[in-house]
Design a protein around this nucleic acid. Sequence first.
DNA 1: ATGGCTGTCAAAGACAGA
Length: 253
Amino acid sequence: MKVATWNVNSLPVRLPQVLEWIAQRNPDILCLQETKVINDRFPQEEFLKAGFHTLFHGQPTYNGVAIVSRIPLSEPRFGFPGWDDSECRLIAASAHNLRIINVYVPNGQELGSAKYQYKLDWLSHLSQLLKEEREDHPRVILTGDFNIAPEDRDAWDPALAGQIFLSPEERTALNEMMDGHFDDAFRLFHPENGHYSWWDYRQGMFRRNMGLRIDLILTSQTLRPVLKDAGIDRHIRKNERPSDHAPVWVDLS
DNA sequence: ATGGCTGTCAAAGACAGA
């Protein structure tokens, strides 16, 4: 059983590539970010034809998250309880015995900015929500675009450490969320340097493999015995008119 | 030092992304 995440940077533009990738990789659950499509225009039918249920949370122009799944989805959640975040960045649902939480963490722009503060506040709300979700659900998969490179080995240039996406505050927020509860599934299988999930469109960054690993699949430690494999489908970034992110997946028995 | 690309909305270029 495969669970995957992909920031598609516009689902209307990327839908053909998403359907093609689904046919190749055959995920059971796919979490999408930056769908950039309102709910009325979500391409439900196309996913239904491919055998997937859909759950989506979108707004005009920006953000937007969705879960598409071969397994029926129940107990949906859209956004945070008790906090009216105006941006569509969190969607969750249960599938079999798994609790899937799909996030599009704010970018943060630059250290000290209002957007950076929003990112830290957002992570704080996520941490709080996660405690509740973990109490209710023993097997959680928290996945999505975190806009945080967890460690120095997750960045093409170690000199980026301390800057946005790699700052101590962002990493502390992520570590505190994970500590003792979650594994970074990809790293259990691939500990070495040079693996990224995002490359800037500009300056041939992909060609030069200058990227960041910011798209993560965090699995409850209770799932560790059933984790079989994990990967990043880097080749998808070579597509014509690609997303700037590649799909990331984990395989569980 | 700056901008380098891509997408949206809308019909040029501002805004956002990472």
